[in-house]
Amino acid sequence: MNAGDVDMLPPRGRKRSALLLLPVLLLALVALGAPLLAWDQPIVCRHDGRLYFPALVVAGQNVPVIGGFLRRDVPFRYPDFVARSDLDATAFALWPLIRFNPDEYTDEALSPPSRAHWLGTDDRGRDVAARMLHGSTVSLRVGIFAMLLAGALGIAVGAVAGYFGGWNDGVLSRVIEATICFPALFLILAVLAWVGRGVGAVVVVIALTQWTLVARLVRAEFLRMRGADFVTAARSYGASPLWIALRHMLPGALAPATVTLVFGVADAILIEAGLSWLDFGVPAPAASWGGMLRSAYEQMRSAPHLVWPPCVAIFVSVLACHLAGVWLRGRIDPLAK
C-alpha cells in the first residue's frame, strides 16, 4: 500500500477516551484538597464576627509557590467550637467530611471502624481515614517531584549522549549502566546521610534511581534522529548544534519521555511506599501510606482492619497513574498498541 492511500484513510488509531484521565484527576483533587476532606478545623467559619478559612489555608499551603504566602488561620478545633457556639449565636462553621487531624494522637488507639472513625484508628489513636486521604498528598508530591527531577537529569544526559555520540556516548552510557547496577540500598543510605531524612531526600533518592529510564529513551531518540534528513537539512543551512538539539530534536524526544515519566510517577509512588515501609521514607508524624502499612503490619493480630486502607490507596493511585500514561501514549502515538 503506498503512502498516499494510507493518507486517505481516516486516522485509525484507537483514540484513547478522556475517561482514562478521570482517576488521576480525582487523585490530584484529593491530594490538593485533602484538608478540605479531613481536618480538625472548619473549611470556613464565623467567629467573633470574623470569617476564617483554616482548612482552606492548610490546603493552600500544599500548593507550591502560593503556599509560601499563606499564614495559618486561627486555630479552632471541633470541641472548642462546640463549647463556643453556645456563647456566640452568630457563629457558624462548615466542617470537612472527617473532623480529625491526621497527625493528632488520641487515647482511642486501635479502635475498629465506627461512626466517628470510619476506618478506625491506628496504634497512636490517629484517624485512619484522615491519614489515608492526607497520604495521597505526600505520595503524589513525591511522585511528581521525583519524576520532574529524574526527567531533567535523564533528558540532559540522554540528549548529550545521543547528540554527540562517540566518546561522549561511551562515557555517559557507562554512567547510565553503572547507575542501573549500583545497589539501590547503598544509594539510599548515602543520600539519606547526605540530605537527611524527609520528603526531599525521598524525592532525590527516587530521581537518582529512575532517571536512567528516561536517559536511555532520549538517547535512543536522539541517535535515531541524528542521521535523519531534517537534521542534515538544519546543518546544511548553518544551524548550530545547540539549535538543532533544542529546536529540532528535543520536541521529538520529549513526547515519549513524557509518557515514560507519567508511568514513572506510578513507580515512584510504589518506591516511596516501600521506603516508608522500611522507615527510610517520609519521617514519622507525616501521613504516608508506606508508614501506615508498616504500623498496620506490626498490629496485624490486634487490628487487622488497618491493613486494607493503605493497600487500597496505593493500588488505586498506581492504577490511576498507569491509566493516565496509557491515555497520554494514545494521544501522542495513536498507532501504539
Binding site: 500500500m1 503506498n2 503512502a3 498516499g4 492511500d5 493518507d7 486517505m8
Partner: peptide, 8 residues
C-alpha cells in the same frame, strides 16, 4: 495518482 484507491 497516489490516493486514488489503486492499492485498496
Amino acid at each position: 495518482a497516489s490516493g486514488s484507491g489503486k492499492s485498496t
